[in-house]
Computed example of a mutant assay.
Amino acid sequence: MPSNVEIKAQVYDHDTLTQRAKEMSGSEGTIIKQQDTFFTVSKGRLKLRDFKNGSGQLIFYERPDMDGPKLSNYSITATDDPDGLRKVLTDALGQVGEVKKERRLYMVGQTRVHVDTVEGLGNFMELEVVMKENQSTEEGVAIANQLMQDLGVKNEDLIEGAYMDLLLAKDQKNGH
């Protein structure tokens, strides 16, 4: 199963972070609109990522909910009928909820740097160090930590869990 080391953080200075990511990647980044629908499963997380262009991906992943770098194991498959698949999975499993975001993707070495604007939550940065076959988790963590420093992200800005968790927590706090 492929794996990556992930770091997620709240972003307070969107423009500075975006500028640093552009410089480090040598690109303007790729804008990707995404709607993720999460389904009720007994372990891990199952989400359907809809790119809003007729294509999507069904993604299953497992990772610990904790601050800082964490190893994710995942499996993924493409679909050209995200709406139909969403309906079938909703009927079969039930939905946890949805996350809508605009993502700007920059590649820095083997790392995907995502600068995300999440509807209802704000701005975030996510690093995904895509692990090579014989690379240790420690190497992935070291790469993530170095990039975090280079991008000017502080330890206290790190968050745990998925955007879905943050949205659910916000809804609970607001009494929904």
Rank of each mutant, 00 (worst) to 15 (best):
R49I: 09
K33Y: 13
N134D: 11
T30H: 06
A144L: 06
Y163L: 02
D50P: 00
V5E: 07
R20A: 12
K52H: 12
L71A: 07
Q35R: 14
M24C: 02
N174L: 15
S3A: 13
N145P: 00
G161Q: 06
E23T: 14
L46F: 01
Q95L: 10
N155M: 07
E119Q: 12
Q149F: 02
S75T: 11
L93R: 06
Q10A: 07
L89D: 13
F39I: 11
A142T: 07
D150K: 13
L158P: 10
T77L: 14
G175T: 01
K47G: 05
M164K: 01
E98H: 04
I76S: 15
Q110R: 09
K70I: 03
L58S: 00
Q172M: 15
L151N: 02
G122M: 00
N4W: 05
T117W: 09
M107D: 13
Q149T: 11
F60D: 00
R103H: 04
T30S: 09
T77M: 15
L58R: 09
N73H: 13
L166D: 04
D165A: 02
G152T: 08
V41D: 13
R112F: 07
L46N: 09
D65Y: 04
K33C: 10
F39T: 10
V5T: 09
D65K: 14
E23S: 14
V153S: 03
L166F: 04
G68P: 04
Q135D: 10
N123F: 06
H114N: 11
F124C: 06
M148G: 02
G140D: 05
G140F: 01
F124R: 03
G94M: 08
T117D: 11
N155W: 05
H176P: 02
Q57C: 03
G122S: 06
E28P: 03
D15L: 07
H14A: 07
D15T: 04
K8I: 11
H114M: 05
E128Q: 09
D67I: 13
G152D: 02
V141N: 08
P69Y: 05
L151Q: 05
D80K: 14
Q19G: 00
V108T: 00
D150Q: 15
N123R: 02
K170L: 12
K70T: 04
F51W: 09
E98A: 06
K132S: 08
V153A: 01
T16G: 10
Q149R: 06
E160R: 08
S42I: 01
P69A: 15
A169M: 09
A162Y: 08
S25M: 12
E62S: 08
F60P: 04
E62P: 00
D165S: 02
Q34T: 04
A92I: 11
V5Q: 01
T16I: 02
F39C: 04
I31D: 15
K173A: 15
R104N: 12
V96D: 12
D13G: 00
L48Q: 06
T111Y: 03
G84P: 03
D83S: 11
G84D: 09
F51A: 01
T90N: 14
G109D: 15
L147R: 02
D80A: 10
T30V: 12
R20W: 06
R63F: 02
M24N: 05
M125S: 08
E98G: 00
G56T: 05
R49F: 07
D157K: 04
G120R: 14
A142F: 01
V153Q: 08
T30N: 12
V141D: 08
V153H: 00
R86P: 00
Q19A: 12
E160M: 07
M66H: 13
